[in-house]
Simulated scan of single mutants.
Amino acid sequence: MAIRLFIDGAAGTTGLEIRERLQGRGEFELLVLDDAQRKNETARRDALHAADIAILCLPDDAAKEAVKLAEGSSTRIIDASSAHRVAEGWTYGFPELIGHEAIANAQLVSNPGCYPTGFLALVAPLVRAGLLPADWPYTVNAVSGYSGGGNALIARFEAEGAPAFRAYGYDMAHKHRAEMQGYAGLKHGVIFAPSVVPAYRGMVVEVPLHLGAMASEPTADQLRGALSEFYEGSEVITARRGAGVSEILLERSAPPSDAMTLHVFGNDGGWHARLVAVLDNLGKGASGAAIQNLNIMCGLPETTGLRL
């Protein structure tokens, strides 16, 4: 019997990608509301209660409302918004860090943010291994394609006279900071410097490190080896064992991908390192992660339907 799946918010960028990618998969029966019903509270409640699993692709307040509408049902939920990423009772949907079994058994799963996906993939394993200190003042420099900003930002970047670069988060209170700090096990909040460029999709997340100022004085080779070992069995995340490349590019029309590649670059003296994650903000950073979690929750092969 097919698994009944409802995507609440299927008209947005992430929802459209998920719906498109699940069509034709015989494991699922998609419950679809037409344009006249998709904002109707009663229709949404009925769909949420009829589904085995619901994926929420909504703004934060609407996602919280959807969870309330689903109360009293046995529906399992994947929330792609940021509403529940550090909320009690929710499982953080990063299987490589949290554990596949935790997600497989969860009732409520919150998809990670796109920027935190890159940061946590780099930093969390190294803090756990004791190679990086938990009390270090980490900085995150990151750039994303404009599709991550939703329909309004997409229209702005595709209009005549579009900006060449957009930096934001200058109030130091970006909502991604809480999950970065919490799931990396850090004492201090990170300094987060996000930006957007005129490429539709793709993302580079970088964490610069002054290794020589750390008490343990880790080397780039140690960091690289630890990440390679941590992700050795992953089909989604690859940690490069060598420096590998001399530059990293975001292509304006890059193909969709659900993979993520991690790099560790170090200088000859070993005092400095740059940790870099390259991913698709709409792939492992959004819809790809939701599909990966969906597969795990349904007992299906983890990479079914992923673009790797």
Rank of each mutant, 00 (worst) to 15 (best):
D221I: 15
Q107W: 01
Y92W: 12
R21N: 02
C114T: 08
H188P: 00
S257D: 02
S257C: 12
L209P: 00
Q181I: 02
V264E: 01
L131F: 10
A106L: 02
R224K: 11
T75A: 03
A106V: 05
A215Q: 06
A162G: 04
C298F: 09
G270T: 09
V190R: 14
I103F: 03
P116G: 11
L30C: 09
H263R: 08
M297W: 12
E229Y: 06
S195L: 00
I55R: 13
L22I: 08
I18D: 00
P218E: 05
E179M: 12
L275W: 08
R240H: 03
G225Q: 08
Y115R: 04
I103P: 00
A178I: 04
I98G: 00
L97C: 03
V205R: 06
V196G: 02
R19I: 00
V276A: 09
E302W: 05
M203L: 11
Y146M: 12
A102S: 04
A129N: 10
L5Y: 11
L31D: 03
N267R: 12
A243M: 00
L48S: 10
G270Y: 07
A54L: 01
H49A: 01
E17C: 14
R44G: 09
T219W: 09
P112R: 01
P256W: 02
E229M: 11
P218I: 07
G185K: 14
G244R: 00
Q292E: 05
Q23E: 04
D61T: 15
G145M: 13
R177S: 13
W90D: 11
Q107T: 01
P208Y: 07
G189M: 11
V123W: 12
G270N: 03
V276G: 09
L262T: 11
G130C: 07
K39G: 15
L300G: 05
S216W: 00
E206Q: 11
Y168C: 07
P95K: 08
L262S: 13
E101A: 01
G99R: 00
A36F: 13
A51L: 03
L5C: 03
L209D: 07
G266S: 10
G269K: 08
D268L: 05
P255A: 02
R156L: 15
L126Q: 06
G72H: 07
H272F: 05
L306I: 06
R19K: 12
L58I: 14
M172A: 15
A226M: 08
A164C: 04
T238A: 05
S257L: 09
P163W: 13
E217Y: 13
A254W: 06
V196N: 07
V32A: 09
E229F: 10
R21M: 09
L250G: 02
P125W: 12
I78S: 04
A104C: 01
E101P: 01
G149T: 14
L282N: 14
R224S: 05
F192K: 09
R4P: 04
P112A: 02
V204M: 13
G148T: 12
K284T: 12
N281G: 13
G182M: 14
I248M: 09
S257W: 12
Y138N: 03
E88K: 14
I191D: 09
E235F: 09
S195Y: 06
P301H: 08
I291A: 01
K39S: 15
E179D: 04
L186N: 03
R128E: 06
Y92K: 02
G299L: 12
Q181Y: 05
E96Q: 10
A199Y: 14
L300F: 10
G299T: 08
D171P: 04
G233N: 08
